[in-house]
Design a protein around this nucleic acid. Structure first.
Lengths: 383, 383
DNA sequence: CTACTAATGAAGCGCTCCTTCGTAAGTAGA
DNA sequence: TCTACTTACGAAGGAGCGCTTCATTAGTAG
């Protein structure tokens, strides 16, 4: 029983304007006739709508394409550049940011290294530098910012506070949403990084087109992100996907099989240890293979639990260890095959390190879409 | 990027007609002025819409309510009685059916006993008798049927075939949807019984108002139903919620703790065994209490897995054993409290045996709503 | 230079909703 | 029983939006 509001004539115009914007966002520049055909409106009506959208600044004319038969047609395009979205990935060692236009087309990316145990201010400063860098690279100013979406490790509250973060000690307890709202004069969204990665994979990556996706962040810490019915599933308390907390799922200590393997050279930094084991396994080293086997044994238990609960179309493997997906995928598939009712597709991430920022951009773009296409407010003029 | 179709004037009228229907379905009979206020339309426009809906048969006039100041106002109501929905629960020992009007208001219920190992034809005949009984009780004919929604035990395929049913041997492999379409000349929907029970609890029962619900069917066989974002979650292959298949979740053999307890008298029918244990536990019998403890220990593992994955607002306990929820709830809560990131509310089902048929009715009503309110087809006249 | 193609722009029409205002049908009180 | 008051009804006039039609315009092809 959603909205009980009946429509005015102006409501109809609004609907048609939004339909036109949608059509223009979906395809490149379109002529008036093409636009009319797609929206089902007559040409004269379409013209009127287009004029109004031009006046409001949502749409602009581009030069007609030459070399066609007949009189050259006007072409219109959505002014995706009239604002920008920023996605931020706040990790332990790096703060990444990406800037996109309103269509989610990425225009600039930056990275700022930061130490895991850096004090709070330092990390916030890194965020500021990362975002400023993107703005500078793309020749924008903070006034062009419509939305900043940030993903970070740790368990969040629904309001955007950080309930707990193992990877970033200074993070726990912080009201990140409030801090970012102080820094940026625009809409601010906070989400868990694995969830954003999941979204990116579902939109642009390995799981493109799938409505129900389980994303596994395999790395020194396990994490997951769920896409259900095409949307990020965060749960009532924003704590969905935390199956790593269940001992029986055997995820918590699983990475230790790789980190503690005897093929890892003495004195290796903890974040590099698993890489040696995975590399050795790829070369057929029996001890490393056994370690990978034990790792996948454990990994498969929690994964099977998620698959059995949700029956997703696809499982995507991301995170640090997924660079060695060639070593992990086959044994993981084999175990899941035995454990699952219906075997989902299992794929490796195709987006790599930029996964989270892209997901953040997609998250921001989704939010914008919802605001645009489901609100009852009339279209406002764009500066 | 849903629909790119722009609107005509008639589209506006259609929108307003649907809004009016929606308003009338939500509240009882409404006067023209009340209707106009709720939909935001002006009175004259509302009148025109109402006239049209009357002509098409969707709405009818009821006598004005007496005793009011001023000139008595016309009142209109949605003709919920111009069709009916039937929900069917096909279980091992019983086939239940309920008949409702188009608003989901239940008008008749029937039950047909049937043996678990009865041949296929016998069970289908029981379904026919159960539905016919409902029609007779409410004075309807098969021609009034708009939708039949059936819930049954077992694993389904997305198309409504029965992939596997442990409780009803003759069921496995049956194309239930096709069979029911032969029997009833209307829309036929098939769903897993636990999912329908979950829907009923979310709409009318213990979890009313919650958008994300985990329903546990606790009984001789474990089953689950998930409501995510207010809708039944069936998964890509309609196999969601089958965590009982995961040995580590410790669900599969859990009921044995109750069935095999030594307080159960020799020679008790297997379906009654657990009842003795639960009753003895309620009386404080130490052996029974220990059995219940072991049962809940196991139950909590799989439940914690689902809660950690989904972070639902609520967990509802239904199924045969939930009649003894007083014995089970406290220890279950205690274990979940320790295992879960965010503790959900845990409640007992309030709908009892009629849970599945009610869920089936709600499922059918949802389907009808979607057809009505999201289709672009104009309103058709009702007979 | 002419024929052809395809988009443009203006005119006229019909539908849907809105506002306004006089009228009708009740109740409450003298 | 009559009058005043309240509330709904119904008709009239007006504005906005989209549709169809048709003459006009700006290109390409030969």
């Amino acid at each position: 029983m959603a909205d009980l509001r009946g429509g005015d004539l102006s409501r109809l115009r609004q609907l048609n304007s939004l339909t036109a914007i949608r059509a223009l966002r979906g395809a490149g520049p379109l002529t008036l006739s093409a636009l009319a055909e797609r929206t089902g409106l007559s040409r004269p009506s379409m013209k009127e709508v287009a004029d109004e959208l031009m006046e409001l600044g949502w749409v602009e004319e581009v030069p007609p394409s030459p070399g066609t038969m007949g009189r050259p047609a006007r072409r219109y395009r959505f002014r995706a550049d009239s604002g920008c979205l920023v996605g931020v990935d706040i990790g332990g060692h790096n703060v990444r940011a990406a800037l996109s236009d309103l269509d989610g087309e990425i225009l600039a990316e930056t990275r700022q290294p930061v130490l895991p145990d850096a004090p709070l201010e330092e990390r916030l400063a890194a965020i500021d530098r990362a975002v400023s860098g993107c703005l500078a690279l793309s020749g924008r100013s903070a006034a062009d910012l419509w939305t900043v979406a940030a993903g970070t490790t740790g368990v969040l509250t629904p309001e955007g506070r950080i309930a707990f973060s193992a990877a970033i000690p200074a993070w726990t307890g912080l009201d990140l949403a409030a801090k970012l709202r102080e820094m940026f004069p625009c809409q601010v969204l906070i989400e868990n990084d694995s969830r954003l990665a999941a979204l990116a994979e579902a939109r642009r990556g390995a799981a493109q087109g799938a409505r129900d996706v389980v994303f596994l962040h395999v790395g020194r810490r396990m994490g997951t992100g769920l896409i259900i019915d095409g949307k990020v599933h965060r749960g009532f308390g924003a704590a969905a996907g935390e199956i790593v907390m269940l001992p029986e799922a055997r995820w918590y200590d699983a990475p230790e099989h790789l980190n503690g393997c005897e093929v890892v050279p003495e004195g290796t930094a903890p974040e590099d240890a698993a890489g040696y084991t995975l590399a050795a396994a790829r070369d057929g080293h029996p001890v490393a293979l056994a370690a990978v086997d034990r790792y996948v044994d454990d990994l498969a238990v929690g994964t099977a639990a998620m698959v059995l609960v949700l029956d997703p179309q696809m499982v995507v493997l991301g995170g640090g260890f997924s660079r060695s997906a060639d070593v992990l995928l086959a044994p993981l598939r084999e175990r899941l095959e035995r454990a699952c009712m219906r075997m989902p597709e299992v794929r490796a991430s195709t987006l790599g390190d930029e996964c989270v920022v892209m997901g953040a951009i997609d998250y921001a773009a989704d939010h914008l879409d919802r605001e645009l296409f489901t609100s009852d407010a009339p279209l406002t003029p764009l500066r």
